[in-house]
Nucleic acid binder design. Structure first.
Lengths: 117, 117
DNA sequence: TTATCGTACAACCAAATGGTTGTATCAGAG
DNA sequence: CTCTGATACAACCATTTGGTTGTACGATAA
């Protein structure tokens, strides 16, 4: 189990990184198989440097990792990070459920003291 | 079932909206119970207009909805949108699984024609 | 060694972001 | 009607973002 608590900054970076189509595509591709930065750059119409920056953003968010192989840097998608993001969204679900639980309580108990309603 | 396909723009907006701590907090609060914009503004140290902008970003991403009630606008979190975001992340999982499936295939069949490897 | 490929990084630029203040509008209380 | 509270929205500003080009450097192929 990954206990590593995510800081607000971490969460910012994860969602920010996912908020760009090119970066999402890079994550998808690198989850399927590790690819070098230049191979990635060939996939898109922008410059090599631009792709490099996108990879850097993803790396900063730990959504991908880089690994030297000869003169290339292989980029590999990090599924764990995706799963952490999913758990973040789960927590929103929890908030919502807390609300309905509270309503259920109210109805079940039929408590005659509805606070500030 | 919600068939509504999300455009790339939609996805951009959803993740972008979630990439800010204040906005995530607004989503959490409004999932628990509908709150007016001014009540929300009281929760944070920034100006009313700033909070209003955050709500607008969330509304644009359809992560919250606004509903007039008297002279107030009640903000309500939209759980469906959170779930759509989760399904987006599921698809990354799918990509990864496709990769392992392919590897499994390779091993199981021990096919002597590994394409371009 | 030399040329080349893959990468890193700096400098620059336009557009978007996240905040501010100020002004206008609209609904409800007196 | 008038005052006030809640909202909307424009204008402005600093910083970040997403792209560019250019330069430098390490690893490999010839």
């Amino acid at each position: 189990m990954v206990v590593s608590e995510l800081s607000e900054q971490d969460v910012n970076r994860i969602f920010r990184a996912l908020a760009d189509p090119t970066r999402r595509d890079i994550v998808r591709r690198t989850l399927v198989a590790a690819i070098s930065v230049s191979q990635l750059a060939d996939c898109y119409q922008m410059s090599f440097a631009a792709v490099q920056k996108h990879v850097a953003v993803l790396e900063d968010a730990r959504l991908v990792t880089k690994e030297s192989r000869g003169r290339e840097r292989m980029v590999r998608g990090n599924l764990d990070r995706i799963r952490q993001a999913q758990r973040l969204l789960d927590r929103f679900e929890d908030m919502w459920r807390a609300r309905t639980d509270r309503l259920d309580n109210l109805l079940a108990k039929s408590d005659p003291a509805p606070s500030a309603l």
